[in-house]
Design a protein around this nucleic acid. Structure first.
Lengths: 216, 216
DNA sequence: TAGATTGTTAATCGATTAACAATC
DNA sequence: TAGATTGTTAATCGATTAACAATC
């Protein structure tokens, strides 16, 4: 299975794969060589058939009675998720959230290499955030175009989100990881993935309210 | 409609409601008084019937031919999402991501008031992050119990996540907003909402790979 | 009035779960 | 061998979308 044979798979499957990877990684460190879907499902409170189908999309194959080789499954997931050949990215909005993302080493291992940051605040321009240079937003087009960057991380204030997204697209960005609460209007060819922290928070609040005020 | 009459509704609906709110808020500032689901759907690229059903769960009622009153719909969404009576919360893990969340004023308006932060790093303890005091993790039980805090925000390194979650639950936390990549093992009565940044990133990478390397 | 829009019931679609033969 | 597990096909479930009568 190589990167050009990417199968269409559901967003839900895509969301579970990193969890399998994390679990398998932990199992690998304990020296475990094989693992069944039954076992993975039990650990993560999922349905075994679902795990089996999810792993199937990555191209991993298991053996009856034995299960999957842990290292093979890990490799298949990494390959499928593109963790072996990271996308170069730029980040616009070097505020607190942007800085936190720049500093997170996990992304480099998970398919995202942030080459440069951009900010409208001239006080930040010219500085570095953990080794990552900060440029003025006016340099965005030039750098994205020159470095052939495909991914843009959007961590600006919500009001500026659409405008910056437009500039990213103009410069040649093909995928936007949108961490602002704004819903972006983009051409169909552009891939947008919204993180929506406030939506996630809404789910938590509602589930808590539903649960009610139980005695403690 | 009051907070005790919380209808069961799908996670997907819950995730769309903040987007409606944001759009309606923008419309309200332009002086618009009424809006149809058709219009909302067009703006957000959704199905009109879906918007209608989503709004229905909040208790908002519209009028044929006219649509919904913008202010009424806004109020209904806020009430339904519990944005009018914020949950008190504590945050554990005052690193870069934790600090970014503490500093984000939007959460206070969206049902989450972070009262205190906790960190294992003694260099941070005793300081303040944008007006929010940082305590040692050993003070967690005491403060959560005394202040009757229901929500815990988890922004510690993945390795510490399960341990800190256990401590939160012991102290009386009922809902955990988990921003670590770890999957938490918690009693059934505890509500966990996972943000899963790396899963979101996986979706973006995969969609890009699928899309292929198109000429630019 | 005519027609846009609501609220609701029915049809479709896709994801999850169950069932089961093949296999090591 | 016996039986746990795979891979796959069928059934179920829930969410989305379509259809349509009611209404202002």
């Amino acid at each position: 299975m190589n990167a050009s044979q990417v199968k269409r798979c559901s967003k839900q499957t895509l969301r579970r794969l990193p969890a399998y990877h994390r679990l398998l990684k932990r199992m690998a460190t304990t020296g475990r060589e094989n693992v069944s879907c039954t076992r993975i499902a039990r650990e993560l409170h999922l349905d075994p058939t679902q795990v089996r189908k999810d792993l199937a999309v990555t191209g991993a194959v298991g053996r009856p009675r034995v299960g999957f080789r842990v290292d093979e499954a890990l490799g298949a997931i990494e390959e499928f998720l593109g963790w072996n050949n990271a996308n170069d990215a730029v980040l616009v909005g070097a505020g607190a959230l942007g800085a936190a993302l720049i500093g997170y080493p996990g992304f480099a291992r998970h398919g995202l290499r942030i080459l440069a940051a951009f900010d409208a605040d001239s006080a930040k321009v010219g500085k570095e955030i953990r080794g990552c240079p900060v440029y003025g937003v006016d340099r965005l087009y030039d750098l994205v175009d020159r470095l052939k960057v495909r991914v843009g991380v959007l961590t600006v204030p919500a009001e500026a989100a659409q405008d910056v997204a437009d500039q990213m697209i103009l410069a040649g960005i093909e995928g936007i990881w949108n961490l602002t609460p704004a819903w972006l209007d983009v051409p169909e060819s552009i891939v947008v993935e919204n993180v929506e922290l406030s939506a996630s928070l809404a789910v938590l609040s509602s589930r808590l309210a539903e649960r009610g005020r139980t005695p403690r």
